[in-house]
């Protein structure tokens, strides 16, 4: 099944964020839940194998938008289908976008692909978090493939594909985690030296600098612990943003 979501955030009168475009078809609905936030709401089980969702987000200059979801998504295998479910997020960010969807749980036998392609303008800032759990309680792990590409002004800042779960070539014992969390933060200014937010490491967790920001990644057996490990590496005072 096809799902399409389209959100445009614009700076309105008095600096308020207005949402001139807010529409969804298929398995997701989108609701405005605050001055600068929307929630994605699943309207069906899934995604199921073969489902294909595209979420287009435009945050215009001066606008601020948070995109959240109301509950974990549970990717399930479709009967007889071997194709993965796909969720593609395309973000065009001249303002500020905070993308924090609830975890994706990939059930046994399911394969979910998550893609984010974000293009940042000169003043664009972005925070995006992926939280993944392979398998529901007492279940074999599913498979998750996550690709993130972030550009600023056409220059690639980060482009990675992480594969988790059976069938992924780099998911091999003794390091084959069921839970995975990654957060990318890119601040407005591109002039912040990378040393200002340097490398930090934890047990099964690492923070790496990016031009104007950082990426934290953590993995392990239990999602709540991994969330904490990733949060522990986030800089206490995130990359400074000019007023």
């Amino acid at each position: 099944m096809r799902t399409d979501v389209e959100i445009v955030a614009r700076r309105g009168p008095g600096g308020r964020t207005v949402l001139p475009v807010l529409r969804a078809t298929g398995q997701l609905a989108v609701r405005r839940t605050g001055a600068t936030t929307v929630h994605l709401v699943a309207t069906a089980f899934g995604p199921l194998g073969g489902d294909d969702a595209t979420i287009r987000i435009v945050v215009e200059e001066g606008a601020t938008l948070g995109v959240l979801s109301v509950a974990a998504a549970i990717a399930l295998p479709a009967r007889g289908a071997t194709t993965p479910s796909v969720q593609r997020i395309e973000a065009d960010v001249e303002g500020s976008l905070d993308l924090r969807l609830e975890p994706t749980v990939v059930a046994a036998g399911a394969h979910h692909r998550a893609e984010l392609v974000a293009g940042l303008g000169p003043h664009g800032q972005l925070t995006v978090t992926d939280q993944v759990l392979l398998g529901r309680a007492g279940e074999e792990p599913g498979r998750w493939t996550g690709t993130t590409r972030i550009e600023r002004g056409g220059r690639p800042l980060l482009h990675t594909t992480v594969g988790l779960g059976t069938g992924e070539p780099a998911w091999l014992p003794p390091v084959a985690p069921r839970a995975y969390v990654s957060t990318v933060h890119i601040a407005e200014t591109v002039h912040i030296a990378e040393e200002e937010v340097g490398v930090a490491t934890g047990q099964d967790a690492v923070r790496l600098p990016l031009p104007g920001g950082w990426v934290t990644t953590a993995w392990g057996a239990e999602l709540h612990r991994v969330v904490r490990a990733a949060a522990a590496l986030a800089p206490a005072a995130p990359v400074r943003v000019p007023a």
Binding site: V162, G163, D204, A205, V206, W219
Partner: peptide
């Protein structure tokens, strides 16, 4: 151009350094 990454290798490299 593939983009496959292994966060384990990132962690190993940074601790090693």
């Amino acid at each position: 151009l593939p983009a496959a990454t292994d966060p384990l290798l990132d962690l190993l490299a940074e601790v090693h350094a």
